[in-house]
């Protein structure tokens, strides 16, 4: 399956290797996800879900295996670099947003990672776009 958007091969991560507390968090895990597919993931605590996510996000380095995203090997890419192409939401709703900045400023920082950049982080055109997007959420924003 070469047209896989996400292609994880042989991913292995072992914590505290060689000690009595050795814990295999990822055991030669393979996962291929075609572009546009929505996969739900189940697993008990300690099944390796968080380790898998952290490895994809670049927050920890796997011992073995590769992660391809859109055909590009991102296994050893820095977390902030791969964030260009990966979005993530956590259980804690406070983790994804900066509380002391306005909604608009938060959106602008997230948006300008790819869009063309103007001198000020927020410009009028983007601002109108954000307003439109927020309205579609229908969350009173």
């Amino acid at each position: 399956m070469n047209d896989c958007e996400l292609n994880i091969q042989n991913l292995t991560k072992c914590f505290e290797k060689g000690t009595a507390n050795e814990k295999v968090a990822l055991d030669h895990l393979n996962l291929m996800v075609p572009a546009g597919q929505f996969v739900t993931v189940l697993g008990t605590n300690g099944s390796g879900k968080s380790t898998l996510f952290n490895a994809i996000l670049g927050k920890l380095r796997p011992d073995e295996g590769t992660i391809l995203l859109g055909g590009e090997d991102i296994t050893r890419q820095k977390d902030y670099k791969r964030a260009l192409n990966i979005g993530c939401l956590y259980q804690n709703p406070l983790r994804g947003t900066a509380p002391d900045m306005t909604i608009e400023e938060n959106l602008a920082l997230a948006y300008t990672r790819k869009s063309s950049r103007s001198f000020f982080a927020v410009n009028r055109r983007d601002s109108a776009y954000f307003r439109e997007l927020l309205a579609t959420l229908n969350m009173g924003l």
């Binding site: 900066a98 509380p99 002391d100 900045m101 938060n106 602008a108 997230a110 001198f119 000020f120």
Partner: peptide
Amino acid sequence: FTRPGMAIRGTGDNEEMVRSSSI
């Protein structure tokens, strides 16, 4: 209020959010 300046503000406010924004 420029992007680099706003990124510095974001870093103090929520560093994870800044990293997620590929900064």
